[in-house]
Amino acid sequence: MAKWGMVIDLEKCVGCQACTVACGMENSRLPGEMWQDVIFFTEGTHPSAQLKWFPRPCQHCENPSCVAVCPTHATYKTEDGVVLVDWNRCIGCKYCMIACPYGVRFYTDEKPLVAPDMRKVLASKDDHSWNPPWKMPDAREDWKHGVGIQPHDVVSKCTFCYHRISKAPPGTPDLDPQDPKLREFTPACVVTCAPGARYFGDLSNPNSEVSRMIGDKRGVRLLDQLGNKPQVYYLTGDGGAVPSSRAINKKV
């Protein structure tokens, strides 16, 4: 069984947020509520301060604290290493949002992040939280795996595009979007990334490109000290950076 993981090369990432948009379209995200976000921050101080950024999907942790805290088992880890939310089970207690160190989980029913509130403009007549003009075919919607337009009062998060990757031919080491045969099984953000900064493959296969890059280029994981052991690795190279500390100085 594969253990899907992602490598993001921060030297190549230009911070264009095409991944964010692609994910939003693919997964019918409410504007502002982005499963795949690009986070901007600064390193250093004036006059040598630099603007840095890093894209942040769900890290699909090896030790997912969100799974352990979920009282209903709505959040679970699949055999192929992906962490998903079953929207038919989630009771909206938000404990998983508390327990996730990466802030990648979203509760549907909150103050709108952008105006006007799209849930009102494009109101849904059924259980869905809204009715976007673009959406995946109904047949692909799959609430058990947290795929599709989110219903009310549940928590959602990045699925690694489970509706795509779960159809990939078994044994594929890397889902390379350059390969026309694999393209439709590759996560939307990886397909769309113009500079090709994102790689997706099987971490349990030592010969996969993702495994080799993590070894050769010193892949690092976000907040690794917490022990969640993300399956998303960042290559920082010479120019990239992941924030090593929290937002504020102690002496606020």
Partner: peptide
């Protein structure tokens, strides 16, 4: 979000780590 769902989802989920 779903208080009534809790009544069956918690006992049937048996997430003993939580």
């Amino acid at each position: 979000g779903h208080p009534f769902r809790m009544l069956w989802a918690v006992p049937s989920g048996m997430q003993i780590y939580s």
